[in-house]
Nucleic acid binder design. Structure first.
Lengths: 198, 198
DNA sequence: TACTTGTAAGTAACTTATTACATACATCAC
DNA sequence: GTGATGTATGTAATAAGTTACTTACAAGTA
């Protein structure tokens, strides 16, 4: 019962996957797990996606759309390049708190062997993200909001690492929500590395 | 043929797992994969470990032993707390270059559900590591080698995140070896956050 | 009526672990 | 030394369970 069109089922499958990934190893989530969580039979999933890999790809695309939207919104709401960096950092942290399964899914896909379509999509997202960061960093340098001799590549890597460090900590010691006030501390430390006085 | 005692086979199984994890998703490495790489039959593995989980636990214990040995050696060879931090960072990076499978294995185990014996072991390693970092950071503050108002918790989290950021970058764009010179840049940036002039 | 979405059952492939059996090897009586 | 014996390590086959995906059929919906 409760028949639904493919479009809404696809969304449901994606969000169920993201939800389940918050508490389990994404690699261990089976089509049966997803179907049970949706109260349909396992075979029903294949009415809406041809393969499991197609589901994983759709999940990654969903993440890209949502996360990049948040990042871009934070950037747009900023008055200068330094505010952009702060805003993107906190937006990313908030997104991770809202969807704790997301970093786990991303990392699980990064572990996939070379040539996997899903993996390459994740690589594209990260490249795009790094490029955005590099632009803001360069602008901040030009506007003398950060010190003039910052290694932009290292700064972009450390930005992502800082977030990843918070994620790892939440995976170690409890819910990501607890890490939110820690996030402010880490951001402050990161900005100090860029020469920002606080 | 080429019978070998259990002790050496156990070591071989562990190092084969670590080696395979450098190029594949650790979650996808089967006992058949390990056995093939060792040129024995799949069943032979169970002469030396009772279950696959026992293999995974042994791998984690091997990592702990080796990594912590490197970290401690780097600490011991340092003249002050700041040199300790630098030494530990670079030792960790070098270890990751030598064994690219290690961070993947650690992360894969962290994804495991709560209560898993292997996961809890990894948690212990990370706690121990963080504690070591906190001590060095506190000492460095006391000796006025870094600025006096560093948030030690955030600094420990960012230290691990900085390494994790390098690992993610290598997973994105190629071998970890390429990331070595990047590591120096990230370390410099991290230390700048602690108020270290360079 | 024609198409879409669902179920129930089944299948092929894969994975961990076990079992029956074979053989190398250390130990020890002699 | 030599040979017997028990144990450790290996193979081949297979059991038992799981997973992604398919198929035959039913029923809702435009």
């Amino acid at each position: 019962m409760a028949r639904q069109p493919t479009e809404s089922r696809q969304v449901e499958i994606i969000s169920t996957m993201v939800r389940l990934a918050a508490e389990r190893n994404p690699a261990d989530i089976t089509t049966t797990d997803i179907a049970n969580a949706m109260a349909v039979t396992q075979g029903a999933l294949f009415r809406h996606f041809p393969t499991k890999e197609a589901i994983r790809l759709a999940v990654v695309e969903w993440i890209e759309e949502r996360l990049m939207q948040e990042i871009d919104a934070a950037r747009a709401a900023s008055i200068d390049a330094l505010a952009e960096l702060k805003g993107m950092f906190m937006a990313h942290v908030r997104f991770t708190i809202a969807y704790p399964g997301v970093p786990r899914l991303i990392f699980a896909e990064l572990q996939q062997p070379d040539g996997s379509a899903v993996r390459e999509r994740v690589q594209l997202i990260m490249q795009r993200y790094r490029k955005t960061l590099a632009i803001s960093l360069a602008q901040a340098m030009e506007a003398k909001l950060i010190r003039p001799n910052v290694d932009v590549q290292a700064a972009a890597a450390l930005f992502l690492g800082a977030i990843q460090g918070l994620v790892m900590q939440s995976m170690l010691s409890g819910p990501m929500a607890k890490a939110e006030h820690q996030a402010a501390g880490v951001l402050k430390l990161y900005l100090a590395g860029l020469g920002v006085e606080s």
